[in-house]
């Protein structure tokens, strides 16, 4: 089924946005799946396996819309594409680390998803709006889970606090990379496709800062007279395809089985 782009929305930039959304979901979904069989407790093993499956399902939705706009098939995007062509942010590709880092990354990502999806739910591009509305319903369960873990682990014991704080120091600058401005983004904003990453980033900081503070976690954010200052250098470049070795290894693992028999089925 081919889709038409409404007049005024630049197709190339729209596809860039769809693929960025999809790549973040697929790559974080893959990282989450690395806990299957390895999480510290059974409930978390089940949780991260479920979350992985949800995120990969969401990736499929975004890749499918991209395909309907003339892009490559979802399978090609996931299993045949060269790792240097992925446009996920560095944050989602970073190795899973300890469980503290995983939990904090998931929370920071889940809030970003809420902010992004609520925004896309009023997109001028109907297929994107409808997908966002649907995905939002499922994402509520992720956020409820990751937020309660962050709050508990941040305040539980000296050891759990220490590990969560260490995770925050690595994760925060990386998380800012989720909001790297896309090439051609201004035209998408003008066409009402979404409000743009700069606006989304501010909304995200406003939500995560008080929650992290309640979890006794320090992040380099200052707020004075309603004005937010971020004292961290965002880890950007992923949206332009400037990827790191972590992603190369992940993509190699992810594509190994497919490449044994491309296009095979069972």
């Amino acid at each position: 089924m081919a889709l038409e782009v409404p007049a005024g929305i630049p197709k190339e930039a729209l596809q860039r946005l769809l693929v960025a959304l999809a790549d973040d979901e697929l790559i974080l979904g893959h990282r989450d799946s690395e806990w299957t069989g390895h999480a510290p407790i059974l409930e978390e093993d089940i949780a991260f396996s479920n979350i992985a499956q949800d995120e990969i399902g969401h990736a499929l939705v975004w890749y499918t819309i991209n395909e309907q706009l003339g892009g490559k098939s979802p399978d090609w995007m996931g299993f045949e594409r060269d790792w240097k062509q992925f446009t996920c942010c560095h944050f989602t590709a970073f190795p899973k680390g300890d469980f503290g880092y995983t939990v904090l990354r998931q929370y920071l990502f889940d809030v970003a998803e809420q902010v992004r999806l609520k925004n896309l739910a009023s997109s001028s591009f109907t297929p994107m709006k409808e997908a966002a509305e649907k995905i939002l319903l499922e994402e509520g369960y992720h956020l409820m889970h990751s937020q309660s873990l962050v709050e508990r682990l941040g305040n539980a014991t000296e050891e759990s606090h220490k590990r969560m704080q260490a995770a925050a120091e690595i994760a925060f600058p990386q998380a800012l990379g989720m909001f790297e401005v896309l090439t051609g983004e201004e035209d998408l904003v003008n066409a009402g496709a979404f409000s743009g990453n700069t606006v989304l980033k501010t909304e995200w900081v406003e939500i995560v800062a008080p929650v992290l503070a309640s979890a006794s976690l320090r992040i380099p954010v200052e707020k004075e007279n309603g004005e937010i200052t971020l004292n961290a250098k965002p880890d950007e470049g992923g949206r332009k395809g400037w990827q790191k070795e972590h992603l190369k290894r992940l993509v190699h693992d992810m594509q190994t089985v497919y490449k044994m028999s491309p296009g095979g089925s069972w």
């Binding site: 396996s49 399902g57 369960y141």
Partner: peptide, 13 residues
Amino acid sequence: LESSFGPTLCKQI
């Protein structure tokens, strides 16, 4: 509630 997630995406334990 024992687990927010379950054996399939649509269930909790």
